[in-house]
Design a protein around this nucleic acid. Structure first.
Lengths: 111, 111
DNA sequence: TTGACAGTTGAATAGTTGCTCAACTATGAT
DNA sequence: ATCATAGTTGAGCAACTATTCAACTGTCAA
């Protein structure tokens, strides 16, 4: 009885995955695999910010920040709004927080 | 009334994060940022496997697989058991599935 | 002991990536 | 028009990384 249920749950949980999706997933995680980008996401999870504000917060050059914002933009993790000379960036996805928090939980565990 | 509640929720949700944790988080995601390692994790999420079995499943050399298994081992994502000449690897953490599934959800969405 | 099989490891190489620098666009103020 | 500010972009370089190759350890069988 319980075994049949487990098999059912297991078959629902485990779907097929193809070569293309594998690359999409690993490319997606590459975006999170850089400390500067994590800092940006963390900062933007607090509040929306302009590029200059991010430069001050992270103590980095406009160019470096802008390059990383492009990567985040391309991966649909941040969105932006132009207001006059400023460009205000903000998070574009609720998954970002979930993913980072799950990682933190994992890292807090003792093995 | 609603505003006060939002502020409270916001303060609970958002904890401090330090420089060290930023690097730990990005290092953790670097592990997921490689297609070979995703393939290994995906395969091991189906069932435990020896190195040779993984070689057949992923069509790669023992050496390449072994190098990546070391990385996964170091990051506490897989565990292993020696049985005779064989080394059987399996997933070491329920967070792995959660993280990969959240990424897949994100990638499936249209923006 | 010898040989075959399973897996690990270190060095070398080829490819990738993050930051800097300089040049650029665009907007607003004088 | 001119200048300052805000941000973007492409090239180049230094640092990193995934795979290959060859040599190695450890286990089992004859």
């Amino acid at each position: 009885m319980a075994e049949t249920l487990n098999k059912k749950i297991s078959s629902i949980k485990k779907e097929m995955i193809n070569e293309r999706e594998i690359y999409d997933i690993s490319d997606f995680f590459k975006v999170f695999g850089d400390s500067t980008r994590i800092k940006i996401l963390w900062a933007l999870d607090t509040r929306s910010m302009t590029v200059s504000e991010l430069c001050v917060a992270l103590e980095m050059t406009k160019s470096a920040i802008s390059h990383q914002l492009k990567t985040l933009k391309d991966n649909k993790l941040v969105k932006y709004k132009k207001i006059g000379k400023n460009v205000i960036y903000s998070l574009d996805d609720e998954h970002v927080s979930i993913i980072i928090e799950t990682a933190r939980k994992h890292l807090k565990e003792d093995h």
